[in-house]
Design a protein around this nucleic acid. Structure first.
Lengths: 253, 253
DNA sequence: TTTGCAATTATGCAAATGTATAATTACTGG
DNA sequence: CCAGTAATTATACATTTGCATAATTGCAAA
């Protein structure tokens, strides 16, 4: 039998572009940037390598498109949390922060994916623009939630507080994604909400929706389950009680 | 003329290993992981490619060694800040936080370097161990500074607060390194110190050493220079005053 | 000086990678 | 049913990459 040529279906441009981008992201998430070769991407997308160059001028262009898609996906995922969130400003903010510090946002693969593109934003203007849009988009959303709190605040204060709160969230997301076992299950959301509240001077923990099985404790709440010691440092909690961060009102010396 | 063989000097093992590691780090910082090829590394180190395999069993082993070196370098740099720091606990903590949010710690190349290795810590146990040691090392140092503050705090509270403060610093470091022009020169250190103070319930800004040329303002300080608008969002500061974060005592509703 | 050893270089190779180009085929409008 | 065309595949190529191995040479000790 002579060479049997592969059967195929003609698909729309958008379909194929999406499939190629999805394949590239999946590969990078699994095996880092090196894993996303032209052939591997094409294979994952159920296509031959040549087609990539039919829809993208170069592999770099595909990479750019993939990064933009990733950023949009992340911000969209966060925005959707607000759809089911309550109406009170404090509760909305608390829910938003907590959701940003749980799976699937906190995820090792997501971190790897994000890191894979980071080094390019310094040199590639397209990448840089996409990153800036994603970062500022998230921060603006956060700032809007902060501004909705029932208290006076001028523009400069809002900006600085949004930057600070965004940083706490980013930092916790980072650490939770990189070292999942270093934290108890609901430790990060709790610390995040507590810290954002401290920065804003508002008690947000009181407005945190109660975890599904546990009893709802309206005030001076016991954190979800901080009983589990840090497996990475078994001795760190020798003197530990049950309250991450101080539950006492912050002493202003 | 027949092939003129390259002249060389015999160096100690440690010297050559260090040179190769330094070369690898420099290349990754400049051009991302892809730039650190065996030939490029050898070239940068003033050596021929074969020598790499003489000192490292594989390129991956060199990569691991480079990451460990990077982590040690970062934590060592931070620790050295404390050598010249004042004695008062608040001032020491403030200086430590501020130093973590300025150059050379905040640096685009450092971020790229760090990101380049991140995706490997998920799969490679060696990488993971190095990362964990670096992260926990920094956090422990921070926790020690927090514990030195003149106020009571139990172990669990300390741990949670250290995690939170570490997250703010990490997040601000991240954003400042990724988008340097999005922040005014001393905006990040100021916001960082302010936020850490808020999380701990201590006014750290008052203990921040005054910037060299500006007048020393012991209380209710005007932040260094937040007059410069955010170039990335020219309209964001339309209503801005001069004070990032609220200078008013935090209202506890 | 000579000798021996290990540090270093030189050469080569097989696999992988991005890209270019030609050949084929599925679908659409007539 | 039939062409035309764009989507898709197939093939080829020049580079690059990591690695292996042989050939050299700097250097220290005898």
């Amino acid at each position: 039998m002579t060479g049997e040529r592969r059967k195929f279906r003609r698909e729309g441009e958008e379909t194929r572009r999406d499939a190629l981008i999805a394949a590239a992201l999946a590969l990078v998430a699994e095996g880092g940037p090196q894993a996303a070769t032209v052939r591997a991407i094409a294979d994952r997308a159920g296509v031959t390598p040549g087609l990539i160059r039919h829809y993208f001028q170069s592999k770099e262009e595909l990479t750019r498109a993939a990064y933009s898609t990733l950023m949009n996906r992340m911000t969209d995922a966060n925005m959707s949390v607000l759809d089911t969130a309550p109406k009170a400003a404090e509760a909305r903010l608390a829910a938003f922060v907590a959701a940003s510090l749980r799976a699937p946002v906190v995820d090792a693969e997501a971190l790897g994916l994000w890191a894979a593109f980071i080094y390019r934003i310094r040199t590639d203007p397209h990448m840089r623009a996409a990153h800036e849009a994603g970062y500022l988009g998230y921060r603006d959303r956060l700032q809007a939630l902060i501004a909705a709190l029932p208290r006076p605040a001028d523009g400069a204060t809002l900006r600085a507080q949004a930057i600070a709160c965004n940083a706490v969230i980013d930092g916790l997301w980072l650490e939770g994604s990189a070292l999942p076992e270093a934290f108890a299950p609901d430790e990060l959301p709790y610390i995040g909400v507590r810290s954002v509240g401290a920065i804003l001077g508002v008690d947000l923990v009181a407005h945190l929706p109660a975890p599904p099985p546990a009893a709802s404790v309206p005030r001076d709440p016991t954190p979800p389950d901080s009983a589990k010691p840090d497996p990475a440092r078994p001795d760190a909690d020798a003197t530990a009680g049950n309250h991450p961060l101080s539950d006492q009102p912050e002493a202003q010396p």
